[in-house]
Design a protein around this nucleic acid. Structure first.
Length: 740
DNA sequence: TTAGCCCACTCCCGT
DNA sequence: AGTGGGCTAA
């Protein structure tokens, strides 16, 4: 291989149309590199052009590349673009998500990794049910140890690359957590299942401990390319370092300003570590933005400039200033939704396509009010991030039967369907079964089937009937096609009959039929595609299909093609762009979220979230906030988000100075004391000098909103939400509060 | 002992 | 709004 720089020619169709910075990144010499790619700067284009260029200049063969992304969508897009620019077969290329690639490696080397060949993957819901079950068994108080927190703890440890024995625990509480962690891992091992984080950790350990395997892959993957590098957690970075070894090149593309997954272990610091660990000489910054007009970019730049911990980058565009950023102050959440509906109707009447418009919000709970308003206005919309196909109850039931066919020791799958459809196995029988399994230290399936050996004549009921059913399924499943197996699972189990007898079961029946269709196309599309992993064993299609179901939970909703508004969380919007974007709910407590105040550097991540949201817009951006909204079944009052103050006024257009009560709004301040009745048992309405919802000013804490009060006329205290200063209780006798 | 119904509870973001 | 626990009828 030559160490001469490869001369880029702008005649080359691969490189045509790239700007200087992009061209520099694509044609960098053989060395590890960090590309700081701002929002809308052509990141994916650079990544795929780099791959194509490396192959075309014969610096590497397609099989010598490893390209890692976070989402299946990004991986697919990369493959599509590579195929479009080069006449090569992408079949042997390793392009995929961290989880998908680790799964592939573990399937190929399952023995060395200590897993059964048909190990199953637990999604978050499965994982939670394992934890709950285990905690019951260990008699752990779920008040002191909420299962969700235990789950976060376990995943957090694994994301850091830690097993239970390696975790520090100096107090009884953390010692208990560690104990549950250890037992949980034992349980998973016994069941032959792996959760998401386990896929990565197990794969890391495999490579670390097994020198032959490690060296094999190190000498194969000379070039490692990583997308969204800022989202990698500690374990993922360690995994990458291990694969890169001393000699391979790593091409990392990322944007520290768009790191919004800290809550699940992402470490922006990996970017700085990468610089030192890999002796990075060149950092290429892609700052020219091809997406938005400059008013939008300037707003984004202004917001993000308030963050201290940045590598530093400023987006610019040669497009004009464009429209001002519009701000709307709503009276309440219904009013906000109504405003959005009215604007959309206007835009639509002017010819803007509905699918060009996105409604973004911080949390999924906010979508309901918007959906209601859109539904009433007869505007078609599509919500991303709801229940996905493979997460639906009826689908998970069907998959559970299929999982049992593949591996009956899977306790989670067994418990899901042992009594669904109901076959007379209640809580008492299950308790006895679990007791038996624990005594014999075996799986529930083994316990259930061993008690059966003696009597096998006559009509079976309850557990024996279930055991017989699964055995019959396994017998009939032998040698049949995948789609036939799905059909067999949903009919023999009685699932189909159960939903057919149900009044409202039509959708579920449709979904079950859809599962058969999914199996057909999976078999067609994937046959001979993934089953040839470096000459290793050919894993069966059922196991592949089940992995696929866990790793790619599937499309969010069926009606993809329809012209509809796009509703999603800010997190889900990363990487997408729209002509018009509405960001709603910009209030203190919601955005930035109140929980973020308790997290280290939580506020900076919230600001990055805001930055991501703003940079989704191409032409027109609406920012809205409401004085009150219904949240968690209670009315909440909030002051405008601090992020709004961070945008220079000359970029803004305030659509209203004061919220106007629209005729459609069904709430009024005068009703509020009654609605807040929960909190004002001892309060006296008449003596109340401040109404709930009243905006007030305080010398030290600034502006806030009264959210509740207590005490009597002589000794009244009010609770005020000061936003950035938090919630404060103030005694009216002493505190100097002025109404605004 | 099990099945089905009703009521209460929580809810940020997600591969 | 979806889930889980508790109660009741069989």
């Amino acid at each position: 291989m030559s160490h001469q720089p490869h001369h880029a020619s702008t005649q080359d169709p691969l490189l045509a149309g790239l700007n200087n910075k992009q061209l520099e990144a694509v044609t960098l010499p053989q060395q590890s590199a960090l590309i700081l790619a701002g929002a809308g700067s052509g990141k994916t284009r650079v990544l795929t052009a780099r791959i194509a260029w490396l192959i075309q200049t014969e610096q590497v063969s397609p099989t010598g590349l490893l390209a890692v992304t976070f989402t299946n969508k990004a991986a697919k897009e990369m493959l599509t673009r590579i195929t479009a620019s080069l006449p090569i077969n992408t079949r042997g290329m390793w392009v995929g998500t961290f989880h998908g690639l680790c799964n592939r490696l573990l399937r190929a080397h399952y023995r060395e990794a200590g897993l059964p060949a048909s190990f199953q993957i637990l999604d978050i819901a499965d994982q939670l049910s394992v934890i709950k079950r285990l905690m019951k068994l260990l008699n752990v108080d779920d008040e002191k140890f909420p299962p969700k927190q235990v789950q976060n703890y376990i995943n957090g440890c694994k994301d850091e690359g830690l097993r239970a024995h390696a975790v520090d625990a100096y107090d009884p509480h953390s010692q208990k957590l560690r104990e549950i962690f250890e037992e949980y891992d034992k349980q998973c091992q016994r069941d032959g299942v792996a959760d998401f984080a386990e896929l990565l950790l197990r794969c890391y350990e495999l490579l670390e401990r097994n020198t032959n395997i490690r060296q094999h892959y190190q000498s194969r993957f000379r070039y490692i390319l990583v997308d969204e590098f800022q989202d990698t957690n500690r374990l993922q970075y360690q995994w990458l370092k291990l694969l890169a070894g001393k000699d391979n090149c790593m091409f990392a593309v990322g944007d520290d300003d768009q790191s919004i997954y800290g809550f699940r272990g992402a470490r922006v610091g990996n970017m700085r570590d990468f610089e030192t660990d890999f002796h990075i000489q060149t950092i290429v910054k892609l700052e020219e933005n091809y997406r938005s007009h400059s008013n939008i970019l300037d707003a984004a730049n202004a917001i993000i400039s308030h963050n201290k911990n940045r590598l530093g980058k400023n987006l610019w565009t040669s497009a004009g200033a464009g429209e001002p950023v519009r701000i709307y102050q709503a009276y309440n959440d219904n009013d906000e939704a109504q405003f959005i509906v009215d604007e959309i109707k206007m835009l639509h009447a002017e010819g803007m396509g509905l699918s060009e418009i996105a409604l973004l919000y911080r949390s999924n709970a906010q979508s309901r009010v918007l959906e209601h308003a859109l539904f009433s206005a007869n505007l078609p919309y599509r919500v991303y991030g709801g229940l996905r196909f493979f997460e639906r109850a009826e689908i998970k039931h069907a998959l559970a039967y299929m999982r049992l066919i593949a591996n009956a020791n899977d306790d989670t799958a067994l418990l899901r369907v042992i009594n669904f459809p109901t076959r007379g196995i209640g809580a008492r029988s299950l308790e006895q079964l679990q007791e038996a399994a624990r005594a014999a230290n075996c799986s529930l399936w083994q316990a259930a089937s061993s008690s059966l050996k003696t009597e096998d004549s006559g009509q079976k009921k309850g557990i024996p009937a279930f055991v017989a059913l699964i055995r019959a399924m396994v017998n009939q499943a032998y040698g049949i096609k995948l789609s036939e197996l799905v059909e067999l699972a949903i009919t023999m189990s009685g699932l189909m009959a159960h939903y057919e007898s149900e009044k409202e079961g039509e959708d579920r029946i449709e979904n079950l039929k859809e599962l058969v269709t999914a199996a057909v196309s999976f078999a067609n599309q994937d046959f001979g595609n993934h089953n040839n992993v470096d000459g290793e064993t050919e894993q069966d299609l059922l196991t592949q299909f089940l992995s696929h179901a866990s790793l790619e939970a599937g499309e969010h909703q069926a009606d993809v093609g329809r012209e509809a508004l796009q509703l999603m969380t800010v997190h889900a919007s990363k990487g997408l762009e729209f002509k018009t974007v509405f960001i709603s709910g910009l209030e203190e407590g919601l955005c930035p979220h109140e929980q973020s105040a308790y997290e280290a550097s939580g506020l900076e991540e919230e600001r990055r979230l805001m930055y991501v949201a703003v940079t989704r817009a191409r032409q027109r951006l609406y920012l809205s906030h409401a004085q009150s909204r219904m949240l968690h079944g209670q009315v909440r009052y909030g002051i405008p988000s601090r992020f709004l103050d961070e945008i220079p006024d000359e970029l803004l257009k305030h659509l209203n100075s004061k919220p106007v009560v629209k005729s459609g709004s069904n709430r009024d301040y005068s009703e509020l004391p009654a609605m807040m009745s929960k909190q004002q048992s001892s309060g006296q309405k008449n003596a109340m000098p401040w109404k709930i919802g009243q905006q007030v000013a305080h010398a030290k804490f600034g502006n806030g909103v009264v959210v509740s009060y207590e005490g009597n006329a002589n000794d009244m205290r009010v609770q005020v939400n000061f936003g950035r200063e938090g919630l404060k209780w103030l005694a009216l006798e002493f505190a100097k509060l002025n109404p605004i």
